[in-house]
Amino acid sequence: MTRKIRDVMSPGAAAVEPMTTVARAARVMREQDVGDVLVAYDCDLFGVLTDRDIVVRALAAGRDPADTTVGSVCTPPPVVTLTPDDTTDRALELMRKYAVRRLPVVERGGCPVGFVSLGDLAGTEDPHSALMDIGRAAPNR
């Protein structure tokens, strides 16, 4: 069943500025219990930083997380986004096309307002799916 993104998204995404260190961004992810943060100046989306970006583009590359900025390792623009008025079908289409699991949600003016994940979408299609069960499980500590 097609629904609006506003009905399934995770609102209030964590965000950091491009000059934030990777170490600080990792602490934000831990504190907010998320695997990604938006990289933005106010309403200007600069990129998306994932936990995988930290591992592959910073740590595995031998970069010091205390000196490396998120702007230098995040997925840079153009970032594929959705609006709250887009549909879940559109989100799935973009995820397939760009091989991503999460998409930032921005207002029409470009201001970030949240994320929609593959897990968010799985629940709209089949609330009893294994993916939904995994999404409801307590995080690893």
Rank of each mutant, 00 (worst) to 15 (best):
M1R: 07
M1I: 09
R3S: 12
K4R: 07
I5D: 08
I5F: 04
R6T: 06
V8N: 06
V8T: 07
V8L: 15
M9W: 04
S10C: 08
S10D: 08
P11Q: 03
P11W: 04
A13V: 12
A14M: 06
A14R: 04
A15H: 05
V16N: 10
E17F: 01
E17T: 13
E17W: 01
P18N: 09
M19F: 00
M19K: 03
T20M: 07
T20H: 04
T20F: 01
T21Q: 07
A23D: 08
R24V: 09
A25R: 03
A25N: 04
A26I: 09
R27K: 12
V28N: 10
R30E: 14
Q32R: 15
D33Y: 03
D33I: 09
D33S: 12
G35T: 13
V37D: 03
V37K: 03
L38D: 01
Y41L: 10
Y41C: 11
C43F: 07
C43M: 11
C43A: 14
D44L: 14
D44E: 14
L45F: 00
F46V: 13
G47Q: 02
G47P: 00
T50E: 12
D53Q: 05
I54A: 03
V56H: 03
R57P: 04
R57W: 06
L59E: 00
L59P: 01
A60G: 04
A60I: 02
D64H: 07
A66Y: 01
D67V: 02
T68P: 07
T69M: 12
T69L: 05
V70M: 11
V70A: 07
G71C: 00
G71W: 01
S72H: 07
V73L: 11
C74S: 12
T75H: 08
T75F: 02
T75C: 03
T75S: 14
T75N: 08
P77W: 10
P77L: 14
V79W: 10
T81W: 07
T81S: 13
L82S: 10
L82A: 11
L82G: 10
T83D: 06
P84R: 01
P84S: 09
D85P: 01
T87N: 10
T87M: 07
T88Y: 04
D89Y: 12
D89I: 12
R90K: 13
R90H: 14
E93R: 11
E93W: 15
E93N: 06
E93F: 15
M95S: 08
R96G: 05
K97R: 14
Y98V: 11
Y98A: 06
A99Y: 08
A99R: 10
V100C: 08
R101C: 06
R101D: 04
L103M: 01
L103R: 00
P104T: 05
V105W: 02
V105L: 05
E107P: 00
G109C: 09
C111V: 03
F115G: 09
L118T: 04
L118I: 15
L118W: 05
D120S: 14
G123R: 05
G123N: 10
G123E: 11
G123K: 02
E125N: 03
D126E: 09
P127Y: 04
P127N: 11
H128M: 11
S129K: 02
S129M: 11
R136C: 09
A138K: 02
A138V: 09
N140I: 15
R141G: 14
